[in-house]
Amino acid sequence: MLDAFSRSVVSADAKTAPVGGSDLAVLRSYVSQGNKRLDAVNAITSNASCIVSDAVTGMICENTGLIQAGGNCYPNRRMAACLRDGEIVLRYISYALLAGDASVLDDRCLNGLKETYIALGVPTQSAARAVAIMKASATALIGETNSPASGGKRFRKMETTQGDCSALVAEAGSYFDRVIGAVS
């Protein structure tokens, strides 16, 4: 597993060069944006159950066949497995966002996930849709762009210092896209 710092070390070691210049500039920006990043991770972890349950609910609302007899979320046991998987994916995304590197997500979560889902008969399209909804709500919470209209009675805004966190929103979005790309 790597983070932003060890990633630059591993790639520098491959060419037996010290880490300097432009590599350090990237790391300095990680350091200077550090508090924003921790706030972003906090935005995900504090709202984890809401993000996950909303995503699974949305997925089922769009495709109600899932909870009818024979559907993949039909008995509570399988619905629970679905919620659990959503939480696991979101957890590894929060690790990746904290580390500033996708390797933990790739190694520990996505490697073999699609094959497992196919073997178990899980519809990967639905899984990808649930992750897409998680992406929408998580990025809205990180960027504080969510509104009462879209949040409904579960609307919540993180009370952090106002500022530009578009880079972090984009980075978090890229991890969700990575999951979507891996399962579909």
Partner: peptide, 16 residues
């Protein structure tokens, strides 16, 4: 960071 993430992953919890 990797130490923190490894510990959190072993416990199966979000970063605290």
């Amino acid at each position: 960071v990797t130490t923190v993430v490894t510990a959190a992953d072993a416990a199966g919890r979000f970063p605290s």
